[in-house]
Design a protein around this nucleic acid. Structure first.
Lengths: 351, 351
DNA sequence: CCATAAAAGGGGAACGTTACCACAAAATTT
DNA sequence: AAATTTTGTGGTAACGTTCCCCTTTTATGG
């Protein structure tokens, strides 16, 4: 009895991946040459180059990042860590970083550390992926994390961080932002100024509070015991802070908020309770996110130019990745600028 | 003459990576066993498992995603494509997706397609990385892109997309959102209703406009020749649309906006030109982003629950990745809900 | 015209995993 | 008690690149 040979001769269940090998065969050169051509890492004849290019296009060749990374111990992947991607300040950074990376054929992995609660995990990811670099826009970085980062040998740039870190940073001059805002309020005649702060004890919050305190101190104004409340950096935190300050008696004539999200939330809460802004209370924010321009009243804020942060950060990171710059940590300072809008006015003269 | 042996005996320039091999040696088992333990892909004795666990911890072993991906032809990477990460609707999706993936030990790569101009590139990335899946939240997807995706054999889920696509989708009922909003305006007595649209010809814009037209048609209201203007989905587009509508004579008594960003921009522009909202013009948005709750006046909007989108999308994607579900494309519909706020009122009775 | 250098290309060993197979020992069935 | 299945384990060949080293060809200079 004759046996049936095979049921399905062409048993191609999985669509095979096109490899550099097929390209080499098609272009009639060796694998090495194709590799050299693709990575521009050696010289290859104009003629052969063209043949390879044709083959690549014809076969729809797509290189395997996994194989590349494995062999070269580096991948075209950059990890961006942010505390909250929903904060427009950080989503703008993400957008800019991504587009800059795209130009360089790099890929961006995003990690939202949830206000840095899970920043540790992000580093593990970077190592797992052979990431070529990390952009760390955390609101706070723990000692242990820093050590791990240094040990892993992956270039790191801190965004909106502070120069004490042992890697390149791009940051604003510490407490300057809130300092500027509060000085402006004082100049207008405010004396009773509250501070609506973000996540307590975080590095960013500390410096923002410090700016407020410094401006108050320099003007010899004492800070009332209930004038500072720290909650968190989100809108809803701001909303709660707004309720808090609107219940305070006497109510401050101005409130300096640690960022715009807080300020917008605070604005809403106060207006809901019938407080007139800026007639009764002046409000300042920080970051100058797009919504501040169009809020009602529009929000006086301090620029914190996310696009510059991203640009400078990516630039420095690539200098480290490509090794064009070595040596001690550098830091770039992005200048603040006070943007005057409708949420601030002179205090009503006391009757 | 005695020769100096070596200048630097411990010449460890590069910190060597700990591999599965070292772990195996440390735990006194074979590589295979360690691999099986780590990937839970086979049985391993409780006792040996513990030894391996200890070794992993002791050596600070971190697996190489590159090697894993290369060998297994799949990586724990999911690609999320969004049209604009700065739109809170999408940044909320990104945040939710990332946190869900984190639970499963997956990593999220983010690609901002800039309103889908560069969506093609994103697919190449997915292939390059052996991404296990793609979450595609594009405002529009071209035919060619879809073909490539299908050919690449990578599971795809469309977010906020439409059921005609040959893959799983989670979406809202087509044009329902703007339909609800406009019906509400009509019910209040508005007859002259403008439409401030997003990126022309994109799939999402088409359906939003359709909802407006359908509601108008059903109420037998004719649409004035200048009442529809499509520009883009961003705040600044909305701002320009606001200027446009505020110059129109007669001015519509209400404007339905294709999303909240547009609405907020439009609100600002109109108020700047002295138009009272809602007394002179009622405004509706769509997506119910957080800023709509706190804008002044607060914005009437239609929910477009980004968290549900993300949850359902990730769930379906993993069912495909893990192969627990096969078969024809499925689609999950997320329900809309009209949220009434202060930006809408009855039209002033014509004197 | 030879010596030398530079350009262009090829061969093969890694990179760190997992998939597959083989096999021994233990548990279960017949 | 033999036959079978289950559980636990190890060996080894891929996966698709790049890197290193070597050979051949072409250009350069004295």
């Amino acid at each position: 009895m004759k046996r049936v040979p095979e049921m399905l001769p062409e048993d191609k269940k999985q669509s095979r991946r096109i490899t550099i090998r097929e390209v080499a065969r098609e272009a009639n050169v060796s694998i090495s040459t194709v590799s050299r051509y693709l990575s521009r890492s050696g010289c290859v004849d104009k003629n052969t180059a063209d043949r390879i290019a044709v083959a690549v296009r014809k076969l729809h060749y797509v290189p395997s990042i996994a194989a590349q990374s494995l062999r070269s111990r580096a991948s075209k992947i950059v990890l961006l860590v942010v505390p909250d991607i929903c904060n427009p300040f950080y989503s703008q950074i993400a957008k800019t970083v991504q587009s800059l990376l795209d130009e360089k054929d790099y890929v961006m992995t995003l990690y939202d550390s949830n206000e840095s609660l899970q920043e540790q995990a992000s580093i593990k990811i970077a190592q797992q992926m052979y990431a070529s670099g990390v952009l760390l826009a955390s609101i706070d970085i723990k000692e242990a994390t820093i050590k791990q980062l240094i040990a892993s040998n992956i270039p790191v740039v801190g965004l909106n961080a502070y120069q004490e870190y042992p890697f390149d940073t791009v940051h604003v001059h510490g407490s300057e932002g809130t300092y500027l805002a509060v000085k402006h309020l004082i100049m207008l005649g405010h004396m009773c100024i509250g501070f609506a702060g973000g996540t307590p004890h975080s590095m960013i919050e500390r410096s923002r509070k410090e700016g407020y305190q410094r401006a108050m101190g320099e003007a010899k104004l004492t800070i009332g015991p209930k004038w500072i409340l720290e909650k968190g950096f989100s809108q809803s935190d701001g909303y709660e802070l707004g309720r808090y300050f609107s219940k305070l008696t006497p109510m401050p004539t101005a409130v300096c908020c640690a960022n715009d999200q807080i300020a917008l939330g605070l604005l809403a809460a106060m207006q809901e309770r019938g407080v007139h802004i800026p007639e009764q209370v002046s409000v300042t924010g920080m970051d100058d996110i797009p919504y501040s321009r169009i809020s009602n009243p529009s929000l006086t804020s301090v620029t914190n130019d996310s696009v510059s942060f991203a640009r400078e950060g990516v630039k420095m990171l690539f200098e480290r990745i490509e090794g064009t710059v070595t040596g001690p940590p550098r830091d770039v300072i992005v200048r603040h600028e006070l943007i005057l809008r409708a949420s601030v006015s002179r205090p009503l003269t006391i009757a």
